[in-house]
Write a protein that binds this DNA or RNA. Sequence first.
RNA 1: UCCCCGGUAGCUCAAUCGGCAGAGCGGGUGGCUGUUAACCACUAGGUUGCUGGUUCGAGUCCGGCCCGGGGAGCCA
Length: 455
Amino acid sequence: MIPTGIPIKELFRSFSSHLGKDIRVNGWVRTRRDSKAGISFVELNDGSCLKNLQVIISHDNPSLVEMLPIITTGAGISAFGTLKKSPAKGQPIELEAKEITIYGTADPVSYPLQKKRHSFEFLRQIAHLRPRTNTIGAVTRVRNRLSYTIHRFFQERGFYYIHTPIITTSDCEGAGEVFRVVAEHMEEEFFGRPTYLTVSGQLQAEIFALALGKVYTFGPTFRAENSNTRRHLAEFWMIEPEVAFADIEDNLKLAEEMLRQIVQDVLDNCDEDLQFFARFIDPNLIGRLEMIIKKPFEVITYTEAVKILEESGEQFDYPARWGCDLQAEHERYLTEKKFKRPVAVIDYPRTLKPFYMKVNDDEQTVAAMDVLVPEVGEIVGGSEREYRYDVLVEQMKQKNMNLEDYQWYLDLRRFGSVPHAGFGLGFERLVQFVTGVQNIREAIPFPRTPGHALF
RNA sequence: UCCCCGGUAGCUCAAUCGGCAGAGCGGGUGGCUGUUAACCACUAGGUUGCUGGUUCGAGUCCGGCCCGGGGAGCCA
């Protein structure tokens, strides 16, 4: 067995219990500095936290000195020695090495990562090594925490986690272009009919919501849109809760509580990483996150939003008009300038929204909701679902849909249909919002965008 | 897909009006120091994205293509 190391995070958190004891740490060398006073300093990082542990190599120990030339940036090593208080400034503790095992060297001439800052664009080209950087390491830890706390949020409220299919036969009308799924070396359709990668688990989640009450999905989603922006991926992860016996107000409340709780959790548990982002990525980050917790969401109807935009006196490239979709510039104005907080826009014209949204009593609008946040834009999109059979059929006919393809969906309205609602939260956009990374490609371990799919 | 900007050393970038292709960092060597984005000296390192053209002369100007970034649209 490989000797286990103590996580560096653990050493910094409670070093008093380890001081003076012999311990082992496994990790990767970030940098080495040699002092002719007879000491070398090795900064070791193991991914458990942002901080490096300083390992002291005394030049009195000939077997360690022999190793020095290959203890270079990037090397994977194990260090065994005594944990001591550091006599110098900069770190509370350091490890005085007795033994070092070098598992893997990293040739300094060809190892692409250097101590100094790299551009994110360059790091994307070495996506297999970029997790070893401070930023991507921190994003990865925050992403993990968000993932954990989202599951916890729903589990604590009695939601069931549903694994909706990745391969589907419905293209979820209006959710974007789809990827076809075909079996290689097979002429005929593997499934006997055309199949696609899912663009949303919503319709299938509705099936289970109308049986188990409260459910959510959290899985990969695929869109074959040729969109080249810092907010879009061809493969991304989406959280989609779906609740029976719930209307648009319940839906809004759920979205707000969810965002508030997960942001609070990250503030409580990822402080070191967030401070790093605040220092190097986005100085306004912490204030923006605290705003989520302190200020209630502003809720306005689409009609009110258009009126506010018309009376704003702002010069927009496209003036706001009732019946037209809100432009990105409109959304930014509402959330960043007018209200300076998350804004939920509800009750959109039915012509702008998909068939499954509940038609309001005015028959002109549907019970949709988009939650907009500063910097990222739309982070949540959802609605109360149309649960009345006749109205749903009418909606589908208006949108020129083939009713036969959705017989199962209509059946849900024929047998025990009840009001229900849900929404989709783009997970990478949440990661973007919480970390401040400008480009969504830094918010996911292996970004897939048009023309790019490494590994 | 459309609009704008860019592609020069391993990385980040400079190069005036078209006139000898440079710096910092990183690498190597030596020096110095309980160092910590260490410091000092020396040193190696180039198909200026590809291609065609204009010119005595092109990193620089023009055409085509490729790639990247930002914005827009679509959306999460």
